[in-house]
């Protein structure tokens, strides 16, 4: 494991912790897109089917379980928790996320490495993850004001894939392995979707001002 991969995993983990902290401390999920959370839960469930077939390391297994468990817990909170669900911005969170699921699945049926159940679900999870942030970004743009923890959450979630790209570049030179171009392209798309958000995040940080996204 290299430093970029570790940084990627840690920022991913931090993003989840920040989100859990926000929900736990404020008993509110305002500004958080349930659609994005559901997509992430689906991403992890589809990708980590290999929990049952392949063992890589204790680290990987624990992280996979944490990602699946936390994403399901967040979805549960936003749908079922008596207090938390009241603050959900249902009327702003109207992105048609089923189209993203359908589109990613069709793409996975067409573009994959091997025509096996696991490989198709793996490709599906990569494609879906690349676009899973869209409902969240749309929600933030609609609500205009972004509270501090929500801003941090999205920032860390975006930073994670950028670190993974550095990790793939590093591995390309050190291990002579190209990995899979499916993840390279999807990872680039995923990171590019955050470009706009990153810009306003850094501007607000530089100016010491509250993060606001233009409508």
């Amino acid at each position: 494991m290299n430093i970029f991969r570790l940084a990627g995993d840690l920022t991913h983990l931090i993003s989840i912790l920040v989100l859990l902290l926000k929900i736990y401390a404020t008993k509110s999920c305002s500004g958080i897109s349930l659609k994005t959370q559901e997509l992430y839960a689906l991403v992890f469930l589809a990708r980590y089917l290999d929990l049952f077939t392949d063992f890589v390391s204790v680290y990987n297994t624990v992280m996979k379980l944490v990602f699946i468990g936390s994403s399901l817990a967040i979805v549960w909170c936003m749908r079922m928790h008596r207090i938390v669900k009241r603050s959900y911005n249902r009327e702003l969170d109207t992105f048609r996320h089923y189209f993203l699921v359908a589109g990613s699945f069709v793409l996975a049926l067409v573009v994959h490495e091997k025509f096996t159940l696991q490989e198709i679900f793996w490709a599906f999870s990569i494609y879906l993850e690349a676009v899973a942030i869209l409902p969240q970004l749309v929600l933030l743009q609609r609500s205009g004001n972004v509270d501090n923890l929500t801003g941090q959450y999205v920032f860390f979630l975006g930073a994670y894939r950028a670190f993974y790209i550095l990790n793939w570049i590093y591995r390309y030179f050190t291990e002579q392995r190209f990995g899979r171009w499916i993840s390279w392209i999807s990872g680039l798309v995923q990171t590019a979707l955050y470009a706009d958000f990153f810009y306003y995040y850094f501007m607000s940080w530089k100016n010491n001002a509250k993060l606001q996204l233009p409508a």
């Binding site: 991913h12 890589v56 990987n60 996979k64 990790n167 190209f178 990995g179 899979r180």
Partner: peptide, 10 residues
């Protein structure tokens, strides 16, 4: 199976 550099990631 051949080693796959992606499947050992998250």
């Amino acid at each position: 199976a051949e080693p796959n550099s992606v499947k050992d990631e998250l």
